[in-house]
Every structure is written in C-alpha cells, then in structure tokens.
Design a protein around this nucleic acid. Sequence first.
DNA 1: CTGTAGTACGTCAACGTTGACGTATTCATA
DNA 2: TATGAATACGTCAACGTTGACGTACTACAG
Lengths: 346, 346
Amino acid sequence: MSEKVRATITDVARLAGVSAKSVSRVVNEEVGVSAETRLRIQAAIAELKYVANPAARRLRGASNALGLVISEFEDYAGQITHGMSQAAQHLDYNLVLYVQNMPGQPAKSYEAFINSGLINGLLMIVPYDYELLVRLCETHGIAYVLVDYEGHAPAANVPTISVTNRKGVLDAMRYLLVLGHRKIGFITGQMDKASARERLAGYEDALAEAGIARDPSLIVEGNWTQIGGLETTRVLLERHPDLTAIIGSDDLTAFGAMDAIKDAGMRVGEDISVIGFDDIPQAAGVYPPLTTVRQPMNAMGAAAVELLIAMLDERPPVSLHREFATELVIRGSTGKPPPHPPTPSP
Amino acid sequence: MSEKVRATITDVARLAGVSAKSVSRVVNEEVGVSAETRLRIQAAIAELKYVANPAARRLRGASNALGLVISEFEDYAGQITHGMSQAAQHLDYNLVLYVQNMPGQPAKSYEAFINSGLINGLLMIVPYDYELLVRLCETHGIAYVLVDYEGHAPAANVPTISVTNRKGVLDAMRYLLVLGHRKIGFITGQMDKASARERLAGYEDALAEAGIARDPSLIVEGNWTQIGGLETTRVLLERHPDLTAIIGSDDLTAFGAMDAIKDAGMRVGEDISVIGFDDIPQAAGVYPPLTTVRQPMNAMGAAAVELLIAMLDERPPVSLHREFATELVIRGSTGKPPPHPPTPSP
DNA sequence: CTGTAGTACGTCAACGTTGACGTATTCATA
DNA sequence: TATGAATACGTCAACGTTGACGTACTACAG
C-alpha cells in the first residue's frame, strides 16, 4: 500500500553496495560478477521488487514488444476489447495485452506485468484471480478499471463498468408476459457471480410484478455455456412439459436451450420462446435469430478506457462506477405462446 | 524500401533548422511557436515520417500505454491470440494490440503503429488491408508474420503460419465416404481467400479419389458465417433432397447447416451428417456436438511468435512458412447415412 | 621480480524526449 | 525613453538502462 514508487536499477545498486552496471549484469545474466556479489544483488532485487523498466531498455536498443493486428474478435470479451482498442487509438494510448492461461497463475507473473513500468493503468475484462490483481494494482499504485461482465460484486471503491443486469431480465420478462406467457423457465449463470444473481433477481421481480407465484422448479442453475443450456433445458422440459418460454442468462445458454427444444421436436419461437442475454454477434445468425438483452459492449469497452485515463490524468471522474443500460432486441426466437400447450400435462 | 531508420526529433529539427524543443512543441501542440516555423516543422515531420518514440516519452514520464488482462477469448482469432500471448510471456515479450475497425482504415493510423518504435515485429491474424500492412512493414523494416487463417495466398517470401486446408477436408471426406456417404454437399468460404479454394480442392480430391463425378450443384458458396451456412444449406436441400452429408468450410457455416437441417425436420448425424472446420470451443458444445477438422490454434499462435522472434534475433528460421497439420475430431454430428434417403427423390 | 592474462568490478555516454529555465526580440505603456 | 510584459525561440538535464571501455586485483609463467 505504501511502496508506490518503482525501484530503479540505481536503488538496487545502492542497497547492494555495487554499481548499477553490476546489477544490470546480474539481471541480464552476464558473466563477470562473483557468486557472493550476485547473491547480494539478487537479495536486493527481491527486497525492492525490482523489475527492469522496458521503456528504458527499449530506448537503449534492447527489444521486447510485438504488435498484434487483428480484424475482429467475435465473442463477448472480444467485442469489449474492440471498443477499448478504438478508444485507446483515439486517445493515443496503446494497449498491452495479457491473456491469462488459467486461474491461479503465479502472482509473480502478474506482478512483472503490473510493475514493469510499461503500463500506467490496467483494464480487466472478467479476469481470473481478480482479487489478487486488484491487490497488486493497489500495492503498486497502478490505476485500474474492472469491466464487470460477470459482476464480481466488488467493493464500492473499485472502479467498474457494468450493465443493468436486473432491469435487463425484467424487460425481457415483461415482454414475454405481454405476449401472454405465464410459465417461464429461467436458467441462471454461475451463481457465485453477482451478475448471475442480479439476472435471477430480475426474473423474480417480474413474477412479483405480474402476481405470479415463484416456482423454484422453473429455475435451474446453468454455467454460461451452450452445453449447460442444453442440459438444464432438458430438465426444465421434463419437469414442465407445458412451459412456453425460457430465459437463458447469456446467449450461449440460450443457444443450448434452442438445441434442446429442437431436439425435443418443438419449434423455437412457436412452441417455446427463448431469450438470451449479451447479444454476441452470433445471436443474430442462429436460427431462428435470438431475441436477447443487448449489452452495449463496444461502448462499455470505450467507457472503461475513458474512465481509466480520466483517473490517470487525475481528472476525478464523476463516479467510479458506470452502469450501462441494456436493450431488449426482439428477433425470431420469441412469439406468442401456442394456443394449447405443446404437450398438455395430465 | 530504403528508409529503414526511424527519424528522431533531432533529425526533424535539423531539417527544419530549429531546435529539438521546438519540434517537441509542435508535436505536443504547445504554444510558443510562430505560424511559419510551425509550418516548416510540420513539413519536415511529414517528409521524414517522424513519429515520436513512445519509449523515450514514457521514460520521460509522459504516458501512453494501458494493460489489458483478459481470461479467455472464445473465438478463432481469440484462440490464436491466446497461444501468442502465452509464447510471448514465456519469451519475455509484450504484445501490443491493435484491433482494426473496418477495412480501409487510413494508412496513417497503421503507419503510426508500425513506425512508432514501440514494437519491433508485427503479428497479423487475418487482418483487413493485409497487402498495405505488409508493404508498410517492409518500408519501415519491421519484421512480421502473417497467421494465414483465411489463406491470402501471399507471395513466397512472406512469413506465414498456415494449416493443411486441403488435406483437412480430404480427411473429412474420406471419413464420410468410409461411412457410406456418396452424395455430399460442400459449402465454401469466401472464394477470394486461398484457404477457401484449398478446402474446396480437398473436397474435389476426395471425389476424384473415390471415383465419384463432381456435381457442381452440390457446391454452394458460403461466407464463413452461420447465417450463410443456413441459407446455402437450404439451397442444397432443395436441390438434393437425397443428400446425406454436408461439409462446411468453417464451424460457423456448419452450425448454420445444422440449423437448416433441424428446421427441415431432419436429424443431424442421423438423416444428414455435418462436418465443420476449425474446432472453435463452441463446436463441442452444440447439439449434436460437431465433428470438425481441428486447427491447432494455440500452437499456431505460439509458432507465429517464435518465428517472428527468430527473425528479429536474426537466427534465420528453417523456413519462412510453417504449416500445421489438421486433425479430424469425430463427434456426434456425423454417422452412417440413413438406409433410405430421408426424402427419396422421384 | 616482471610480464601477461583473466576476473571483477566501476565510469561514462548515449538512446529520444520534454520540463525547467534562460535569452533575445518585439511591442505597448508609463 | 525607460520599463515591463509577451512571444519565440534555445539550452540543459534527466528519465533508466546498457555497451564500450577503463581499472584494480589476483594468479601464474618465465
């Protein structure tokens, strides 16, 4: 929390009682340093958490960056990234990419990235180990913004971009209710994420608003995947052959629901309506096209960059949180409920 | 082709007959420069294609980079990016991201990126305007590698990572033929891409090998999208109610084919088999799971980084091209053809 | 004991840029 | 006419690092 200043090679040299050049030799694994001196320098490096400044190295001729040009990413995180890249180009910033391999990477790896002096702020889209990353940012005095897709429900003072999860599902439900649906299944996301809980709350809000009793057997827990949507929908259909609509907590889940419905010999949008959440590019391309709650992903990415740069410029932002409104996009996967339930229950 | 050395602020200053500081003032839009001097400096900047060196700026305290941490991208380009990021972390390189908004962006924008001195090599995944980008790289003496997903059929001296497109489809066809399929539809990609043409050639190879006459009405032109797969499959099914298998030139196309087949009241993998190409993460999650030709995308990304760094280190690589083998992944979307064609033709 | 080579350091300058500060010129005002 | 202020520059140093080069010390051969 205190050591906000990056240690330089000179700091290490002073602490170890040698010249900067000797430290450089150790860092670059050159010869010409005695074993004991090397040890002393390594201790100093560890103590000060010294990481060589890539900018200085680069200026000196040593090289360490590759550019990556890409036309489009098609998925959720990619859409946000796209928005970020546009905004960054516009504001004359570069984006240095770090893709996590899996949760639980050594903190050292993150630390080298955060503490390298290469970047002055950090954007995070649904990262693994987010608490650790946030902590490292705070330790090293690096500003950051969390794009809170999966709604980790961070502390109030954590800068966040999010969407109206609850309201989004509420809108979707209202639309289904207006169409005449009464028996509506809901597939949650991973319930350890705040956004999953918020979306479920939106479903419950709508039921309450319409005076429909909450039936727990209409709610199943998915996992944000297509296969999860498929499996949970099968459960729902077995429990409730007479349900007429299903809301998935994201588009992939909804795709899986569509798969299950078709597989059961019913027609999506006629026998059973399906609504997703996100509006990834593919949502418009499936058959029938998916009705879904759109997140303005491009705008969210851009907003994240703008918020972060505002913080860096010490222009105090209006608020640390920016919540975007969702929008219901109506396509072919929804319609009026069939006059008679597809498979009347006894 | 000649101006391989980046101009510095001092070069500009010399050409304009002023001090470096004055150039700095113009570049940073500070006051204190007369209109005529400003014009002279701007001319010099344009002539030398001067772009301020971000490393020097950063060292000086001026800031211009944001980090982006992300857990996963789920689509094709994202998978490759993931492989690149891993390899780059391992080799102690950073990845600076540039996402194109659309084809035909001002060359100036690319040039600023390539000529900034920020990066020493460039990776490109299916970029728009690839000829322009390659030309800019050559002009500025920046090494590059093209990850040639859509197979732009570049000149022989262009460093490329690719896959065995032709062999991949050939393998898929052989598998279908062994299962007993004889009437197999093929949906191409965008035919201005070499990879689309190569994949089609693989289809034709297999027909020739099996002694089946090539029927042009079984070949339709898609566009690498799910909706394209849907529409072209409808055409195929209308023309050939008795076909028993369809190969799509990528997974999204195959998803669309599955949609069309289901919509026509038939069962994927039973009435009609479907094979895709790529093996994006979603392929295993659709229903039925998609049989597809896998591209080792992670390995391709890593190989691209390694090839590029080898070039930068002037370790002459074994070859400028690296072609990866595809692998047929058999899942539920394929099976034996039905004993009788689903809808016998008259 | 001198000469030579090897090892373990240190010193210095430079990479390209810009903030702080200095200086010359112009022009208006007292 | 002297004074002050504004404008248009230039000079210098520093950001953090490392290549080139210098220097001390040790070891060993002649």
